[in-house]
Design a protein around this nucleic acid. Structure first.
Lengths: 219, 219
DNA sequence: AGCGAATCTGATATACCGTCAGATTCTCGA
DNA sequence: TCGAGAATCTGACGGTATATCAGATTCGCT
């Protein structure tokens, strides 16, 4: 009569992994991550992942059902970075300090994406295509962000600084959408006249304005 | 001595297509579109597309280098819908009418995505993954929208309603990013308490506020 | 050294990819 | 109406990836 212990990492056939196996599994995940960074998802094959990990395709299948499952695990790892973001959102939003904080949020978001670009792109595609597993990871990564933002919007709304026609959750989701999409392809935008700093500053101000209902202070 | 006529549709080997061939090509594109709507990109195979089009894989290769090229052509077709959006952006942005117009823009964007969801998702993934061909189509679809928005932002800035720290192009790109991402997965968001109308209204207000520098009027 | 458990892989059946030579269908002049 | 030739399509095939499993290898332990 005791609660099952926190999730052990399992084999495809449900067996727990020993230290050697953990090693191999990690190498496979790393290889998957690297490969996705280099090639399109469509071209990421099990053979190639195995080759990079210095092992055989059969071994890959010992740990993952297919490439998408390996990617899912990577997406779960990336989702673990969310709390740091939420912490920023919970800081005070007033005045100059608040704007600086908004900048930090945008920067953190972009950085998070820069580190996990390929994986997050695939995660979002799969989620948008209807894959429940990926919808779940994305939700787990974004829901805290959206809900904390929504709470702030709601506060501003109750203080009368934001119109009642705004829906706090929708606003938060829209802001998250902006941050996600912008982070995904900021490099392409940057090749069109707006530097990275411009993007961050501008985005921070939209964020600030939408969350607080106040005009961002001059710097 | 005359300009080359507008692009003829070509065969894989560069030959112009007769009427029968045009028919077949269209069926293949349609089949690709449908298949992408139903399955993930990764699983969209040439055999399956051919089957749906009632023809053979070899025929597919007569017209397209691979699935991604067929998708590219579909993305080009979708890009042709952009001008309608730009027309909306160019309408006046003042007061109640302006807000209504913002709503129309958001609606039009969402609708455009609802009709071309799968294709646009794949387009964006491929572009984000660095595929130049897809970057080009996306650019051609979005640049007009972004530039017209940017011009409006700049006007508001010159009128002193928007801080100088904002970069008009960056702001426009951020707004486009928000619209894109939101359109891509609005259905999932809608299953979390904000209706489609909430989303549109909220998004329209963020758009209005960011473009004009004014608070959106009450409805 | 040697046993059992953990971990890995060669071999294989299946399926898709991408090409090409040849088959089929259409067009049009006689 | 009947071919000849052009336009269009497809069967067949070699190459490669998928996914599985039985057997081989490696490891920890006595």
């Amino acid at each position: 009569m005791q609660t099952r212990q926190a999730y052990k990492t399992l084999d495809q056939s449900g067996r727990e992994l020993g230290p050697r196996a953990m090693q191999t599994r990690k190498r496979l995940l790393q290889a998957t991550h690297d490969l996705l960074d280099r090639q399109s998802v469509r071209d990421a094959s099990v053979v190639e992942i195995a080759r990079r990990a210095g092992t055989s395709p059969a071994t890959f299948y010992q740990y993952f059902k297919d490439v998408s499952e390996a990617t899912l695990r990577l997406a779960e790892e990336a989702a673990a970075e969310t709390p740091a973001l939420v912490e920023l959102i919970d800081r005070p939003w007033r005045g100059q300090k608040g704007l600086e904080n908004a900048r930090d949020i945008v920067s953190a978001f972009v950085e998070h994406w820069d580190l996990n670009r390929a994986v997050l792109l695939v995660r979002n595609l799969a989620a948008d295509e209807g894959d429940r597993r990926f919808q779940k990871v994305r939700r787990e990564a974004l829901t805290p962000v959206i809900e904390h933002l929504a709470r702030r919007v709601q506060e501003s709304q109750q203080a009368g600084r934001i119109a009642d026609e705004m829906h706090p959750y929708a606003a938060a989701a829209a802001l998250a959408a902006m941050l996600e999409r912008l982070s995904a392809h900021h490099r392409e935008i940057e090749s069109f006249g707006a530097t990275r700093d411009h993007l961050i500053e501008t985005c921070a101000r939209i964020l600030f304005q939408t969350v607080t209902g106040r005009t961002a202070p001059a710097s």
